[in-house]
Design a protein around this nucleic acid. Structure first.
Length: 499
RNA sequence: GGGCCGUUAGCUCAAUUGGCAGAGCAACUGACUCUUAAUCAGUAGGUUGAAGGUUCGAUUCCUUCACGGCUCACCA
């Protein structure tokens, strides 16, 4: 701390020195003629002699990332966050007064520089400075230049520092932005309307999860932060917006892990007159085209794997259980899936955790998650889920225990969840009542009754298919990120003590 | 919430069996007008995450706490 205090004092002293010499320590603007990136794209192709001939003079600005003074001259690398360029300051070129200003510069300061662009003896594209400007002071030192900043806690708490010194971090978030833009383009091109629905809700529905609670003072009512977008979007399908989507933040009051952040970004889209089979094809098209647009290839590196988006697999949930069942446990039969007792035995045989209140559908889903999920590295669609764990999905015509639902797995993670929407208000009401019973048995994540949603369905909702895609996890897949915190700029952490 | 691991200078890391807390970079002073991990000479910088305990002596052993990582549970 002493050291940092000393350094702060030193830097504040330099700031005072700037003032004493008549400079505004925090000037209001700097008119630049080129960004560093523009200089790179426009002039990178030219050699020393060509640059001498062209005499391109620029005004650029950025943060000093490297400072190499050399007596009566000096070099700096300045960065605009994305690109870097070297600038060369000579006392006999800028004059004694401006050189005095240069000598007050510190690593991390924001500066402006003007002058012609040339190439040094070592062929480095460089601004031969005729005048430097001080634009803002760095009072706290930047992390070391070649190990950079690796302490993850500091990286997440002070993401601004992470972004300054770790260029790869920026590129993840540039890709994230591009993913979101491409998704919007994809859906807009297909006639979907983007809408915004309430974040504050009196019933947090559309998913099985625990919500955050809050309170509205003027109305004196308890409210929840939404856990899904689903029920409002389907109300809009009833209202005749037959292709609709929302891409926004949702909130779940659950644990934090490498795959979970309490607030995360969800895309949900709904398409009338379609069923889940249509969305399988659409998802495959969307995700494959995103992979290609973001990474430049349909073969995408993820950790030690190459994800091949040219070769998608599709299994029913039961097929996946058989296929990935471990050799160490006795193989199940199709009939075993009908008996709670047999299902519990199977779960125990693979050390899966279950509750005594779990019905056959929940147990089946548990078996699937335990044996199959880790194996689903390549893009895989798992379809036909138990009705018991899918209170908003439509049953299969030939099997009332199963619903028309699928999930998309990539890199062992659940990326998307989609189904043919239940649009029979009487059955929806009955499903909500089943959920209320589960809630009565202590299941805090069971769905609450949403009477207005049932009323909306009673006006008639066309056959509809809907899907949710987790944007954070999709971004992980397409940026080779192992933790969700690497794709969220400010992931939730416990508060620190800042003086 | 449980288990395991971690926290030493601004950053990245050392420190033998419990025996004087160190290095590189950053910083400061000086030299240096084509350097780019600039170089050379010198200087300074520490409540070892916090609080207790054991001990002649604790970065090191013990307890509690804080924060983080991994993992399990929960979930997407």
């Amino acid at each position: 701390m002493e050291n940092q205090t000393n350094l702060l004092e030193q830097r504040r002293h330099k700031l005072a020195e700037l003032k004493r010499l008549g400079y505004d320590p925090y000037p209001h603007k700097f008119d630049y003629t080129h960004t560093i990136g523009q200089i790179r794209t426009e002039l990178e192709a030219f050699n020393h002699d060509e640059l001498q001939e062209k005499k391109v003079t620029v005004r650029v600005c950025g943060r000093i990332m490297s400072l190499r003074p050399q007596g009566k001259a000096g070099f700096m690398d300045i960065s605009d966050g994305e690109h870097r360029i070297q600038v060369y300051v000579r006392k006999d070129t800028v004059g004694p007064e401006n050189f005095e200003l240069f000598q007050l510069f510190d690593l991390g300061d924001i500066i402006g520089a003007e002058g012609p662009v040339f190439r040094t003896r070592t062929n480095e594209l460089t601004v031969a400075v005729t005048k430097v400007h001080h634009l803002s002071k760095n009072l706290l030192p930047l992390p070391e230049k070649w190990h950079g900043l690796t302490d993850v806690e500091t990286r997440f708490r002070q993401r601004y520092v992470d972004l300054i010194v770790n260029p790869d971090v920026r590129s993840v978030f540039v890709k994230r932005s591009k993913i979101i833009r491409e998704i919007r383009n994809f859906l807009d091109d297909r006639g979907y309307l983007e809408v915004e629905t309430p974040v504050l809700q009196t019933i947090a529905g559309g998913a099985l999860a625990r919500p955050f609670r809050t309170h509205h003072n003027a109305l004196d009512i308890e409210l929840y932060l939404r856990i899904a977008l689903e029920l409002y979007l389907k109300r809009l399908i009833v209202g005749g917006i037959s292709r609709v989507y929302e891409l926004s933040r949702i909130f779940r009051n659950e644990g934090v892990s490498t795959h979970h952040n309490p607030e995360f970004t969800m895309l949900e889209f709904y398409q009338a007159y379609s069923d889940y089979r249509d969305l399988m094809d659409l998802s495959q098209e969307l995700i494959t085209s995103l992979a290609e647009k973001i990474t430049g290839s349909r073969q995408v590196k993820f950790q030690e794997h190459i994800l091949n988006f040219d070769s998608w697999q599709r299994f029913s949930m039961k097929e996946a259980i058989f296929r990935f069942w471990p050799d160490s446990a006795p193989k199940p039969n199709e009939e075993d899936f009908l008996s709670v007792k047999k299902l519990r035995t199977l779960a125990a045989s693979i050390h899966a955790h279950y509750e005594l209140t779990d019905g056959p559908g929940k147990l089946l889903a548990t078996l699937f998650e335990t044996v199959a999920e880790d194996h689903l590295i390549q893009p895989t669609i798992i379809y036909d889920y138990p009705a018991e764990v899918s209170p908003l999905s439509k049953r299969k015509a030939d099997d009332p225990t199963t619903v028309e639902r699928f999930e998309l797995y990539i890199a062992g993670m659940e990326i998307a969840n989609a189904y043919s929407e239940l649009n029979d208000p009487a059955e929806q009401k009955a499903r909500f009542e089943e959920q209320l019973n589960a809630r009565g048995r202590g299941d805090e994540e069971a769905h609450d009754m949403d009477a207005d949603y049932v009323r909306a369905l009673s006006y008639g909702m066309p056959p509809t298919a809907g899907e949710g895609i987790g944007i954070d996890r999709l971004t992980m897949v397409l940026t080779d990120s192992i933790s969700i915190r690497d794709v969220i700029l400010f992931p939730l952490l416990r508060p620190e003590q800042v003086e």
